[in-house]
């Protein structure tokens, strides 16, 4: 049997493994084409879709993160500049307030001094007037009293010391009674 096979091979008959078979050629062609069509239409596009989506998911995520970071930086710069503006503003307002406050205090002091001066002057004038009035009335009264006293003294006996003293006392008592 072994010899028969060997002789077959040597003779290059059906056993020659290099000679193709028509049926196998046809089947190989059809089977391979079929597989090619299936893989090309069903499998390759789906895998490519998955790859593309994955790439997109990864690079899209990075892009979004970068965008968010850029926005955050812009916002930070904006807030920083606003903050420094506000600080400058506050400084200016404080400065103005200080100046205004100083002005107000100065005004008030001036007014108070004026008022004080005015009140003092009024008081001085009033005192002077009252003094003049007192002097005038005193002068009148003293005159009257002196005249009255003189007349009374003259009316009594002026030589008697006791009597004279009594007259004076009575005059003063009358004076007090008349008040």
């Amino acid at each position: 049997m072994a010899i028969r096979t060997l002789s077959n091979f040597a003779a290059g008959e059906a056993a020659n493994p290099l000679i193709p078979h028509t049926a196998e050629l046809i089947v190989g062609f059809i089977a391979f084409s079929l597989l090619f069509l299936v893989l090309r239409s069903k499998v390759v596009p789906m895998f490519e879709k998955a790859f593309a989506e994955r790439t997109d998911a990864i690079s899209g995520g990075i892009e979004r993160a970068e965008k968010a970071q850029r926005e955050a930086e812009i916002a930070l710069a904006k807030y920083t500049s606003q903050l420094s503006d506000a600080q400058g503003e506050a400084q200016k307002i404080r400065e103005e307030a200080r100046v205004q406050g100083a002005g107000i205090i100065e005004d008030l002091r001036t007014k108070a001094q004026e008022e004080a001066a005015r009140i003092t002057a009024a008081a001085v004038a009033s005192i002077e007037a009252e003094r003049q009035q007192a002097i005038t009335s005193l002068r009148n009264e003293v005159g009257t009293l002196a005249t009255e006293l003189a007349s009374k003294i003259v009316g009594e006996a002026l030589d008697d010391q006791v009597r004279q003293s009594r007259i004076v006392d009575r005059f003063i008592a009358d004076l007090e009674k008349s008040k």
């Binding site: 049997m1 072994a2 096979t5 077959n8 091979f9 056993a15 493994p17």
Partner: peptide
């Protein structure tokens, strides 16, 4: 009488 495998085994 062992028959060694040969090209015939592929046919």
């Amino acid at each position: 009488g062992f028959t060694p495998p040969s090209t015939a085994d592929f046919n």
